[in-house]
Design a protein around this nucleic acid. Structure first.
Lengths: 133, 133
DNA sequence: AATAAAAATAGGAATTGTTCCTAATTTTAG
DNA sequence: CTAAAATTAGGAACAATTCCTATTTTTATT
């Protein structure tokens, strides 16, 4: 963090203070408030690097939007297939069993505990429309 | 299926005969072999409808590619964060507990058993590069 | 079988999200 | 203090997806 660039620190702090899971575009917009010349390319590049360094999680939603989440506490994501909203949830399920199943059956050796489950959220079940569908 | 259009039947049959998880573009390419004038828009529209009807599963990978899978047998997906490859796996983990955790904590009421876990595949761990990274 | 209404399609234009490029700036190491 | 390495801003380029419209196909009704 010490040797993070000003821009990168800003991006991390935006994620720290965000309860939702902002998109790159939203992070860019918020960043502009403090760093008036920051470019969208910089936002993307840093999000990419932070995600590869496992500081943040990149979440691809079923409606195409990509969202970002700071990896603070260990939690999982339930995502609505129709509007793409992400709901955090906690669970003490035994992931070891799942991890073993995966290890035995696939070539995916490292298990990142990035797990998501799809569903339909309350609003979408009621047929409420929003900006995403 | 009976009242599916010729084009839609073709798309389903392509997914039926595909071991991998093809992208819309790949499905389009394969479809063209049999239906020389099928358009990409038709492929997208049908994939969307089939996915909403729960006939197929739309899988968003961490590298941006969107892939499709026919819902035949119940299985889950382990996806490589770096190359986006999808590995099917089976598990008899008790999803009921997970489902309960989700139900209690989120507004996501319907649980679709579409679950994916991210990781790093063998090849990517070895640092092998491929067309996607 | 004829016809009107509804649904689906082909083809391509438009839009959106993301990556890539380059010159300039900032940081790091010696 | 200086040279090399890394990062940035800004914008062009690219790729995936959606949208639009005229045409074709299907369905339902008689």
């Amino acid at each position: 963090m010490k040797n993070f660039s000003r821009q990168r620190k800003l991006i991390v702090s935006i994620l720290q203070n965000s309860f939702e899971h902002p998109t790159a575009e939203e992070i860019f917009y918020l960043a502009r408030q403090k760093e008036k010349n920051i470019s969208l390319g910089t936002v993307y590049r840093n999000l990419d690097m932070l995600s590869k360094e496992n500081v943040i999680e990149k979440i691809s939603t079923p409606i195409g939007k990509v969202k970002y989440d700071l990896k603070k506490d260990k939690h999982y994501h339930a995502i609505c297939k129709l509007c793409g909203e992400i709901f955090d949830f906690y669970s003490n399920i035994n992931l070891e069993k799942l991890q073993n199943d995966i290890k035995k059956q696939t070539k995916l050796e490292t298990f990142c505990e990035e797990l998501s489950v799809l569903g339909i959220c309350e609003k979408c079940q009621k047929g409420e429309k929003n900006e995403n569908n």
